Computed example of a mutant assay.
Amino acid sequence: MEYFVEELKNKKIIAADDIKILKNYINKKYSKADAKEKAKMLSNTIHRILDSNLKELPEDYRQTIKIDILKSTFSQNKTSIFMYDAFNCCMKNEYLKQNSKKEILKWINAHIKNKIEENDLNIYIGIPQNTISQDIKIDLSKVNDGYPAASLDLKAPIVIPDKSIKITKDYKSNKKPLIFAILSAILILEIIGQSFHGKNILKASFSLISASERKGIYIKNIIEEVTLEDYNKNHPNKYLPEYLKYQKVDTHKLKAFLNSRNSLLCKEPYFSTIMTTAREFNLNPILLFAITGQEQNFVPINTNNAYKIANNPFNVYHSWQEYNTNISDSSKIAANTIINLSENRPEENNPFIWIGKKYAEDTNWGNGVQSIFEEINSYFSSNN
């Protein structure tokens, strides 16, 4: 009957390998971000991992369970968190245990192979809870401590509603609990902030499959989902139609199209920078590339001054000759310009024509960009 407990004890939520992959990805993808921003991004991502693994439980109790899990991480110097840790927190909450058995049962069966019945859980609840989660110790000495504790004093008390945690151990003498101590402190602060604001900072749910199981295949999507939600809040672009707002595109096909035009923009740093700008400003990447097609024919690599033109293929501030900076700067200016020029557009007005009236002196600019935009989309469709 207790076989399900063993399954929960062996089902990891987050471990050192996962954190290492996340940190490495953040360091590489967002190399220009400061350490505090990287720590924030990492803590947000881990917070979503916890959320995604508790979503079947009653919403009113998830915050409490997360806090209890993190407190347990502190007190037992754990290097990984298992499903059993969450289950154990549920069993310690008498009201939850007695009044939310169906939700707990649903949560258990969502995370184990051998499903149990309500009667099995009832029998287990009658058993004294004297077992302690057996944490699998993981050597964290190889995990780079790259981020500071987001200016947190690990020895200072961290106050939470009606409860407090005080970290008094000298972590300098033992690197194994350091990362989880830092992350737990950051995450607890995140949870508190969310409680005060009455809603989750990050709502979208996903599941992180252990790196040892899937070799980190989904890490990129996780990070992008975290950052994309914040970007969309900053740039709702309410005057643009949905098809011109950010959406994922097949980067292989997009590069293939650019290659067919002998474009320098399919190379780095141009391609990734334009893609990042599109995501940051909530714009369809194809729109930005279509503008480079209209302005500079996608910057053919054999064109004179191709590398200078590629610094400003949008011709912001009149032209690449007058304003020659770098692709990050020019793409952001172009994105801001598109958003600003789209304001107050009546829904029935063509967005390309509306923006083009002020973006360029050429009265056919909007028609040209729209034609290229449709050409790229047609290329995607015809090359499935």
Rank of each mutant, 00 (worst) to 15 (best):
K169A: 13
K332F: 06
K233T: 10
A33G: 03
Y231E: 07
A35N: 14
L240Y: 01
F373S: 03
P351L: 11
Q294S: 13
T276M: 12
L341G: 08
I219F: 06
T303R: 14
Y270T: 04
L50K: 01
L287R: 00
I192V: 12
K215P: 02
D135A: 09
A335C: 00
N232R: 15
K357T: 14
N259S: 15
K142C: 06
D362T: 04
R214P: 00
Y379H: 04
K28C: 05
P58H: 03
L105C: 09
D250M: 07
E118V: 08
S195I: 06
N377E: 11
D60K: 12
N53H: 12
K215N: 13
Q98Y: 07
K215S: 09
S173N: 14
L42D: 08
M1W: 10
E295I: 07
S72R: 09
E268S: 13
N349V: 15
I223P: 03
Q296M: 10
Q247T: 13
L258C: 12
K11N: 14
D135H: 08
L265K: 01
Y3V: 14
A310K: 00
K215H: 11
I132V: 15
A156W: 01
Y231W: 05
V143P: 00
Y239K: 02
Q321R: 13
L208F: 11
K357L: 11
K233F: 07
N24R: 09
M83N: 01
L8T: 05
I222S: 06
D153S: 04
S184G: 11
K215C: 06
V369L: 03
E348M: 15
K176G: 05
L152S: 12
T363A: 12
H235P: 13
T273Q: 11
H235G: 08
N109Q: 01
A33W: 09
P269V: 02
